[in-house]
Write a protein that binds this DNA or RNA. Structure first.
Ligand SMILES: NC(=O)c1ccc[n+]([C@@H]2O[C@H](COP(=O)([O-])OP(=O)(O)OC[C@H]3O[C@@H](n4cnc5c(N)ncnc54)[C@H](O)[C@@H]3O)[C@@H](O)[C@H]2O)c1
Ligand SMILES: NC(=O)c1ccc[n+]([C@@H]2O[C@H](COP(=O)([O-])OP(=O)(O)OC[C@H]3O[C@@H](n4cnc5c(N)ncnc54)[C@H](O)[C@@H]3O)[C@@H](O)[C@H]2O)c1
Lengths: 213, 213
DNA sequence: ATGGTTATGTTATTATTTTCACAAAAAGTG
DNA sequence: CACTTTTTGTGAAAATAATAACATAACCAT
């Protein structure tokens, strides 16, 4: 389970490396990357070690090589198609951001919605009725979906995605989705995130035994 | 640091409890709540114990009492004002969702943007020019801000928020913000989250030592 | 009452993650 | 070429977190 933190950090490192490269750097050291990514140098070396990534004993890491290794791990070179279910506030924001995803070789190829008024192109992405979703998934070999539907419909939508053959879901509805355990689910509860920030910023009190956040 | 997971889980529990209450339930047990929240019963009891929340030795927990305790911890009864910086795709989606936040007693009271064309009301929320942000923060005692600006401006915006007196930031820009450590920062990198889901769903390979996600 | 059952609360145990520490390789230096 | 400096890579130690275990209180049925 905790491999996911590991992966999350590697992705973070990649993001920082891309920025370093844009700034014209050629090399990084575990401590310079660590400073940028907000992680200890040892942690970085451990993470790299875990995935068999080697640096140069004294010369740090060559950014281009590091990025190659990370891109290999994350299958960066293949373009990865994903679908979006629910094209409301959040769904629309994601659809409009598609060129940002595309830079990372992720691409929302289609949206789906039950509301007929949503059935139109948004930022070049066709939005289709829910009924055609299962066929679309099968015909295009889609494995990952983003869910941005109301909480009441979320479990039902999740079920049909799983039935259609989806293997990974990024869910924005404030509910813990249940799915067979071979399906990877990431619940993003923005209200809870906001609330935890508020709590840590304002309410952390000693009498609750909270020392730091 | 790990206290934050603890808090995240408590918020999750609260979410589930609200749903249970809506469904007409009066009591929960550590196992029923656990099933709903995707957490082990022991973990739940541990979390409650950590925050001094008590149940009934045989009757489980009274939902209303539990919610009272959790609301007390999270200062739910006071309405918490937050501001939003950057009213683009994501910022707009959040602004439009404001009644959803309001239900949780969180409220976006104002947006700020450098783009003059954004300076108008969105869903009743006034969007103001960046120049007035510091004064607004001070006059209204705002402590938490949501940042939805491009990565290039993010650190600069963060700095001015911190200077204005902000104590907590929820950041959507794909960059690890640096701030004094009394400031709580939560970086939400949606690209990375999506990518990690894709990785776990598709690419987890034995030869990388990855067994499960 | 009394004995059995149930679910909490907490202590003990196990597992995981992070940090520490240091040997070893590379690169510079005189 | 020896000697110093630097930074990686990793195994050992420490810290944290999750799980299991179980004693204890509350309830129920007889
Ligand atoms: N917008 C935000 O800032 C925000 C913040 C926190 C959480 N969320 C959560 O994210 C989810 C989406 O939020 P939103 O503001 O975009 O909501 P929204 O109501 O604007 O959009 C939901 C979309 O899903 C579609 N939909 C409903 N049922 C469907 C179904 N069964 N199949 C397919 N499509 C369906 C609707 O037609 C609509 O277009 C919600 O669960 C919400 O609680 C949103
Ligand atoms: N939209 C998405 O789905 C998505 C997904 C992943 C990450 N992100 C990240 O979230 C952030 C926002 O994304 P978006 O799609 O909403 O971008 P956007 O370009 O639509 O909106 C950014 C807004 O910030 C404003 N802005 C720019 N500089 C500013 C400054 N210095 N002060 C105040 N306002 C400023 C702009 O005027 C604009 O209104 C970006 O960093 C993006 O990388 C967005």
């Amino acid at each position: 389970m905790q491999i996911r933190n590991n992966i999350r950090r590697l992705l973070q490192y990649r993001m920082c490396l891309i920025r370093f490269r844009e700034l014209g750097f050629e090399r990084v050291y575990s401590y310079s990357l660590g400073r940028e990514a907000g992680v200890s140098p040892e942690q970085i070396r451990k993470d790299f070690s875990r995935f068999g990534i080697k640096g140069n004993k004294r010369g740090g890491y060559l950014i281009s090589e590091l990025l190659d290794s990370l891109n290999y791990i994350f299958g960066k070179n293949e373009l990865q198609d994903v679908i979006l279910i629910g094209v409301g506030n959040i769904g629309m924001a994601l659809a409009r951001y598609n060129c940002g995803f595309f830079k990372r070789r992720k691409y929302i190829v289609a949206g789906f919605d039950i509301d007929p008024s949503k059935i139109r192109k948004i930022n070049e992405i066709p939005v289709l009725p829910m009924e055609v979703m299962p066929r679309f998934v099968k015909e295009n070999g889609i494995t990952v979906g983003i869910m941005a539907v109301p909480a009441v419909s979320a479990q039902e939508v999740c079920n049909s995605l799983v039935n259609a053959g989806i293997k990974g879901i990024m869910n924005f509805a404030p509910i813990v989705l249940k799915a067979p355990k071979h399906v990877v689910i990431e619940n993003i509860n923005l209200c809870n995130v906001l609330e935890s920030v508020i709590y840590c910023a304002n309410y952390a009190r000693d009498d609750l035994g909270v020392l730091e956040c």
